[in-house]
């Protein structure tokens, strides 16, 4: 088991090292480097950028994130259930249906309140 996750960690590290090798070592040796202020400005279709790029954005992004959090946690709960629910039988199935039902009520509420509308 531990060896399995050693591979996961190793792959993550090597993936990052591959990027560092390519950008910071291999490419750095051969690429030109002569920056000037015009090159280093933020791109805004050739105009001088107006203000900063860290703009305020619409609250609807937060609404989707909040609805997502509810369902993300729930789907993680569903995976262990999906594996063993046949051994646990009808009771576990009905129990999960109750759980899903409560969440669907939540979805219906969000839908009715217009949280899912991109207005």
């Amino acid at each position: 088991m531990a060896a399995d996750y050693a591979y996961v960690g190793f792959f993550l590290v090597v993936g990052v090292l591959f990027v560092i090798l390519n950008i910071e070592i291999l490419s750095r040796i051969i690429r030109p480097h002569n920056p000037n202020p015009q090159k280093l400005t933020t791109y805004e279709c050739g105009e001088e950028p107006i203000g900063i790029g860290w703009i305020r954005f619409h609250v609807r992004y937060y609404l989707y994130a909040l609805v997502y959090i509810v369902f993300a946690v729930e789907t993680v709960f569903l995976f262990p259930w999906a594996i063993v629910f046949r051994e646990l039988g009808l009771f576990a199935f009905l129990e999960m249906m109750v759980f899903i039902g409560i969440l669907l009520v939540g979805l219906a509420y969000a839908w009715k309140k217009g949280a899912l509308e991109w207005a």
């Binding site: 390519n22 950008i23 291999l26 490419s27 690429r31 480097h33 090159k39 950028p49 790029g53």
Partner: peptide, 12 residues
């Protein structure tokens, strides 16, 4: 792409 200049904007 390997030979292209690497630019990081000043504001980034």
């Amino acid at each position: 792409l390997l030979l292209k200049e690497d630019l990081i904007p000043t504001g980034a």
